[in-house]
Amino acid sequence: MTTQDQPAVSPPADTSLANRYGSKKQPLPRAVKRGIAVAALAAGVGFMAWVSTSSAGSDVTFKDIGFTTIDATAAEVDFQVTREPGTAVKCAVKALDSKFAVVGWKVVDIPPGEADGTADGGRTVSQRVTLRTESLSVSGVVDDCWIPGAGT
Protein backbone atom coordinates (compact mmCIF):
# COMPACT_ATOMS: atom_id res chain seq x y z
CA MET A 1 0.00 0.00 0.00
CA THR A 2 1.24 3.26 -0.92
CA THR A 3 0.06 6.45 0.53
CA GLN A 4 0.12 9.65 -1.26
CA ASP A 5 2.53 12.24 -0.03
CA GLN A 6 0.79 15.06 1.61
CA PRO A 7 2.04 18.50 0.58
CA ALA A 8 4.01 20.08 3.37
CA VAL A 9 2.46 23.10 4.92
CA SER A 10 4.90 25.96 4.38
CA PRO A 11 5.30 28.50 7.13
CA PRO A 12 4.21 32.05 6.40
CA ALA A 13 6.67 34.01 4.29
CA ASP A 14 7.41 36.57 6.98
CA THR A 15 8.43 33.86 9.44
CA SER A 16 10.69 32.02 7.00
CA LEU A 17 12.39 35.26 5.93
CA ALA A 18 12.85 36.25 9.56
CA ASN A 19 14.45 32.88 10.28
CA ARG A 20 16.76 33.20 7.32
CA TYR A 21 17.75 36.87 7.42
CA GLY A 22 16.79 38.02 10.88
CA SER A 23 13.97 40.22 11.98
CA LYS A 24 13.25 43.63 10.50
CA LYS A 25 15.40 46.42 11.87
CA GLN A 26 13.73 49.05 13.94
CA PRO A 27 13.92 52.60 12.55
CA LEU A 28 16.10 55.08 14.42
CA PRO A 29 14.26 57.14 16.98
CA ARG A 30 13.61 60.77 16.05
CA ALA A 31 15.98 62.04 18.76
CA VAL A 32 18.86 59.99 17.35
CA LYS A 33 18.20 61.26 13.82
CA ARG A 34 18.14 64.83 15.12
CA GLY A 35 21.42 64.28 16.99
CA ILE A 36 23.11 62.94 13.85
CA ALA A 37 21.87 65.93 11.83
CA VAL A 38 23.13 68.40 14.47
CA ALA A 39 26.53 66.67 14.62
CA ALA A 40 26.86 66.73 10.82
CA LEU A 41 25.91 70.41 10.72
CA ALA A 42 28.43 71.25 13.45
CA ALA A 43 31.16 69.31 11.60
CA GLY A 44 30.36 71.19 8.38
CA VAL A 45 30.48 74.58 10.09
CA GLY A 46 33.75 73.64 11.79
CA PHE A 47 35.27 72.53 8.48
CA MET A 48 34.25 75.77 6.76
CA ALA A 49 35.73 77.82 9.63
CA TRP A 50 38.99 75.87 9.38
CA VAL A 51 39.18 76.34 5.60
CA SER A 52 38.52 80.08 5.81
CA THR A 53 41.09 80.69 8.56
CA SER A 54 43.77 78.46 7.06
CA SER A 55 43.69 80.28 3.73
CA ALA A 56 43.69 83.66 5.49
CA GLY A 57 46.93 82.65 7.23
CA SER A 58 48.76 82.60 3.91
CA ASP A 59 50.26 86.09 3.89
CA VAL A 60 52.43 85.55 0.80
CA THR A 61 51.24 85.02 -2.75
CA PHE A 62 53.21 84.94 -5.98
CA LYS A 63 52.51 85.11 -9.69
CA ASP A 64 54.73 84.04 -12.59
CA ILE A 65 55.08 86.86 -15.13
CA GLY A 66 57.61 85.68 -17.70
CA PHE A 67 60.60 83.58 -18.57
CA THR A 68 63.60 84.07 -20.85
CA THR A 69 66.23 81.53 -21.88
CA ILE A 70 69.52 83.37 -22.18
CA ASP A 71 71.55 80.35 -23.30
CA ALA A 72 72.15 76.73 -22.22
CA THR A 73 73.67 77.91 -18.93
CA ALA A 74 71.32 80.71 -17.82
CA ALA A 75 67.67 81.69 -17.67
CA GLU A 76 65.69 84.63 -16.26
CA VAL A 77 62.40 84.37 -14.42
CA ASP A 78 60.13 87.38 -13.83
CA PHE A 79 57.53 87.17 -11.06
CA GLN A 80 55.56 89.23 -8.57
CA VAL A 81 55.29 88.66 -4.83
CA THR A 82 52.52 90.10 -2.67
CA ARG A 83 53.07 90.32 1.09
CA GLU A 84 52.51 92.76 3.92
CA PRO A 85 54.86 95.77 3.80
CA GLY A 86 57.77 95.33 6.16
CA THR A 87 57.83 91.53 5.69
CA ALA A 88 60.89 89.76 4.29
CA VAL A 89 60.12 86.83 1.99
CA LYS A 90 62.06 83.94 0.45
CA CYS A 91 61.06 82.40 -2.88
CA ALA A 92 62.26 79.19 -4.53
CA VAL A 93 62.57 79.67 -8.29
CA LYS A 94 63.27 76.85 -10.72
CA ALA A 95 64.03 76.36 -14.41
CA LEU A 96 62.76 73.26 -16.21
CA ASP A 97 63.82 71.44 -19.35
CA SER A 98 61.52 69.95 -22.01
CA LYS A 99 60.96 66.82 -19.87
CA PHE A 100 60.00 68.95 -16.83
CA ALA A 101 63.24 68.08 -15.05
CA VAL A 102 64.68 70.81 -12.85
CA VAL A 103 67.83 72.18 -14.52
CA GLY A 104 68.23 75.29 -12.34
CA TRP A 105 67.16 76.21 -8.80
CA LYS A 106 67.65 79.21 -6.58
CA VAL A 107 66.20 80.57 -3.32
CA VAL A 108 65.77 84.33 -3.60
CA ASP A 109 65.65 86.71 -0.61
CA ILE A 110 63.14 89.54 -1.04
CA PRO A 111 63.83 92.26 1.51
CA PRO A 112 61.04 93.89 3.50
CA GLY A 113 59.46 96.80 1.68
CA GLU A 114 57.85 99.88 3.08
CA ALA A 115 54.27 100.97 2.57
CA ASP A 116 53.97 103.54 -0.18
CA GLY A 117 51.31 105.46 -2.06
CA THR A 118 50.65 102.80 -4.72
CA ALA A 119 47.24 101.22 -5.17
CA ASP A 120 48.09 98.22 -3.02
CA GLY A 121 50.18 100.14 -0.49
CA GLY A 122 53.52 98.62 -1.49
CA ARG A 123 52.44 95.03 -0.94
CA THR A 124 53.37 93.79 -4.43
CA VAL A 125 56.95 93.78 -5.71
CA SER A 126 58.27 92.60 -9.07
CA GLN A 127 61.39 90.49 -9.23
CA ARG A 128 63.72 89.30 -12.00
CA VAL A 129 65.99 86.40 -11.09
CA THR A 130 68.81 84.98 -13.18
CA LEU A 131 69.30 81.25 -12.71
CA ARG A 132 72.33 79.20 -13.68
CA THR A 133 71.18 76.09 -15.54
CA GLU A 134 72.91 72.80 -16.28
CA SER A 135 71.22 72.46 -19.70
CA LEU A 136 68.85 74.35 -21.95
CA SER A 137 65.68 75.35 -20.10
CA VAL A 138 62.27 75.77 -21.69
CA SER A 139 60.38 77.27 -18.75
CA GLY A 140 60.94 78.94 -15.42
CA VAL A 141 58.52 79.21 -12.50
CA VAL A 142 58.28 80.14 -8.86
CA ASP A 143 57.97 76.94 -6.86
CA ASP A 144 56.98 78.53 -3.55
CA CYS A 145 57.31 81.66 -1.41
CA TRP A 146 57.31 81.86 2.38
CA ILE A 147 58.08 84.09 5.32
CA PRO A 148 61.37 82.97 6.90
CA GLY A 149 60.91 81.64 10.40
CA ALA A 150 57.09 81.52 10.15
CA GLY A 151 55.60 78.20 11.19
CA THR A 152 58.87 76.72 12.42
Score class of each variant (00 low, 15 high):
1 M>I: 07
2 T>Y: 02
4 Q>D: 13
5 D>Q: 14
7 P>Q: 03
7 P>D: 05
8 A>P: 07
8 A>I: 14
8 A>L: 15
12 P>H: 07
13 A>K: 11
14 D>M: 07
15 T>H: 01
17 L>F: 11
17 L>I: 05
19 N>Y: 09
21 Y>F: 15
22 G>T: 04
23 S>F: 09
25 K>V: 14
25 K>D: 15
28 L>P: 04
29 P>G: 13
30 R>L: 10
31 A>R: 11
34 R>P: 00
34 R>C: 01
35 G>N: 04
38 V>Y: 08
40 A>I: 08
41 L>Y: 00
41 L>G: 15
41 L>S: 08
43 A>D: 04
43 A>M: 14
43 A>C: 13
46 G>T: 10
46 G>V: 04
48 M>T: 10
49 A>H: 02
51 V>C: 09
52 S>E: 12
52 S>M: 13
53 T>L: 09
55 S>D: 14
55 S>A: 13
56 A>I: 01
57 G>H: 03
57 G>M: 06
59 D>E: 14
60 V>W: 09
61 T>C: 01
61 T>L: 04
61 T>S: 13
62 F>S: 08
62 F>Y: 14
64 D>M: 06
65 I>D: 07
66 G>A: 13
66 G>N: 06
70 I>Y: 10
71 D>L: 04
71 D>R: 07
71 D>P: 07
71 D>I: 09
72 A>K: 13
74 A>E: 12
76 E>M: 11
77 V>M: 04
81 V>C: 01
81 V>P: 04
82 T>P: 00
84 E>S: 07
84 E>G: 00
84 E>D: 13
85 P>A: 05
87 T>E: 12
89 V>I: 09
90 K>V: 08
90 K>R: 11
91 C>V: 06
93 V>I: 05
98 S>Y: 06
99 K>T: 09
99 K>R: 11
101 A>S: 12
101 A>I: 06
105 W>F: 10
107 V>W: 00
108 V>D: 15
109 D>H: 00
109 D>I: 01
110 I>L: 15
111 P>Y: 04
113 G>S: 15
114 E>Y: 06
115 A>P: 09
115 A>T: 11
116 D>T: 05
118 T>E: 03
120 D>N: 07
122 G>E: 07
123 R>L: 08
124 T>P: 01
127 Q>W: 05
127 Q>G: 01
128 R>F: 01
128 R>A: 08
129 V>C: 03
130 T>C: 04
133 T>A: 09
133 T>G: 10
133 T>S: 11
134 E>G: 11
134 E>K: 15
137 S>Y: 06
137 S>H: 08
138 V>N: 15
138 V>G: 10
140 G>D: 06
140 G>Y: 03
141 V>L: 11
144 D>S: 14
144 D>A: 15
145 C>N: 11
145 C>T: 09
147 I>N: 02
147 I>Y: 02
149 G>F: 02
151 G>V: 03
152 T>F: 13
152 T>G: 09
